[in-house]
């Protein structure tokens, strides 16, 4: 892991991640970023350390009378084996260096939206309505016409780079776009691009992206 992410989640998002209040897709993007970013892991550890110190400072509320007996009884019971849920891990992801968060994610299949472009939706056990989350692969050298966004959209870079008017983004970078951002991202000409995308708000038709993405030469 030689490359360190340069673009990080905003602090309020990292805080909401810490307290478990992000939608499944948003949570996965932040989790994946922290898998790749020592700096944000360190920030999360600081949150835990603060929480620990504040827990220490709290005046306790008495447990019920039999609480200790119950606790001592519970530790004698055999531990139920943790159910290891089966996660679909399709072959088309084999060649990619995926962080742990995505190795554990349920990604049943992919579909091609244009030549050189596929999307692979991430499936969640819990209600993930309102957010669409998918891996997106884009062949090197593709560019999207200038566009804006409806609602928050996070692109977490896993492989390759893309550039837009605001900068250049590589592995681990956490790119947050919303209505205020207008850009025309272009995938590097040297390397294919894989990213994890979480879109809130408007759910676009499957073909939308394919219509937008064009080989660079044709623009």
């Amino acid at each position: 892991m030689t490359h360190s992410a340069r673009v990080h989640p905003p602090e309020d998002l990292l805080w909401d991640y810490h307290r478990g209040r992000l939608s499944p897709g948003m949570r996965l993007t932040v989790r994946t970023h922290t898998d790749l970013c020592p700096q944000c892991r360190s920030e999360l550890r600081l949150f835990d350390a603060i929480g620990g110190a504040l827990l220490e400072d709290v005046e306790g509320v008495a447990m019920s009378d039999n609480a200790l007996d119950l606790a001592l009884a519970r530790i004698e019971r055999p531990e139920e084996p943790e159910s290891s849920a089966t996660v679909t891990h399709p072959g088309f992801l084999d060649g990619f260096d995926l962080p742990e968060s995505l190795k554990a994610a349920d990604i049943p299949g992919r579909y091609w939206v244009a030549p050189g472009v596929w999307m692979a939706p991430v499936r969640f056990d819990e209600d993930s309505r309102g957010t669409k989350t998918y891996l997106m692969f884009v062949k090197k050298g593709m560019v999207m016409p200038e566009h804006t966004h409806r609602g928050r959209e996070i692109t977490l870079m896993l492989k390759g780079t893309f550039n837009d008017q605001n900068g250049s983004y590589g592995r681990g970078d956490f790119v947050l776009c919303d209505e205020t951002i207008q850009h025309s991202p272009a995938v590097s000409a040297d390397e294919d691009c894989l990213c994890l995308v979480a879109q809130e708000g408007l759910i676009l038709p499957k073909t939308w992206l394919g219509k937008l993405l064009q080989p660079f030469a044709r623009i």
Partner: peptide, 19 residues
């Protein structure tokens, strides 16, 4: 060590509950 657990429980369970 169950004694250690009892001490730990007595110290932290009420704090966790309050928190």
């Amino acid at each position: 060590d169950r004694d250690a657990y009892a001490l730990l429980f007595t110290r932290f369970a009420p704090k966790l509950k309050a928190f």
